[in-house]
Amino acid sequence: MCLLEERGGFSFVCALSLAVVAMGFRARAKILDSDDIQRILKRVAHEILERNKGSEGIALIGVRTRGVHLARRIARAIEEIEGGKVDIGELDVSLYRDDISIRPTPDVGVTNLDFDVTDKKVIIVDDVLYTGRTTRAALDAITDFGRPKVIQLAVLIDRGHRELPIRADYVGKNIPTAGEERVKVSLEEVDGVDMVEIGEGELS
C-alpha cells in the first residue's frame, strides 16, 4: 500500500496509489541514465561550492533512504573538486511528518547526525521534490538539532505539484509531471542500478 512519501523515489499520491494498488510500477520512459546522474551530481557539487564560496562549513544531510546516498556522492564530488572534508548526516523524518495520524504507521529508520549543525551551512539532499512535505519535516527535524547558519535544499528531481511554499536551491532536473504519474529513482547502492524513470503505479 501507500508507504512513505517519495519512498523508493516515488511519490505521495495516495488516492491514486490506492486505485492502482497491487498493480506495481510500470515505467513509461527512462529520464536519466547512470552517466546523466553522475554529470548532474558533479554539476550540483560545483553549484554548491559556487554559492557557498567553497566547502568551508558545509554539511550535507541526506533524507533517507536515497537522499543519503546522493549526499554521499555529492560530498565525494565536492572533496574531489576542493579537497577538504564535508560533514555528512542521515535523517529519517518519519517522526516529524504531518500525516502520522492519517496514514498507516510508518517505520522509523535511523537518524545519524554526529556533528553539531549549529552555524553550519546545511544542505538537505533528497531524491525527488514533490509536495514539499518531506522537506518541511526535515527542516523541523534539523532545527531540533541546532541552529544552522543557513539551510539549503538539493534534489535530483523536481517534479512540481508543491503543497507548501518550498523550493529547491539546487535541482538536478525539472520533470513536469501529471499528478498520477510516478517518478522512480534507482540508485546503485540500493537498487543495483542508477536511473530515473517516469511511469504509473505503485512500487512494491
Binding site: S101, I102, P106
Partner: peptide
C-alpha cells in the same frame, strides 16, 4: 497510537 485511524477513513 500512530496511524490509528482505520484504513477506510484513511482512504
Amino acid at each position: 497510537l500512530s496511524g490509528s485511524v482505520s484504513s477506510e477513513r484513511f482512504e
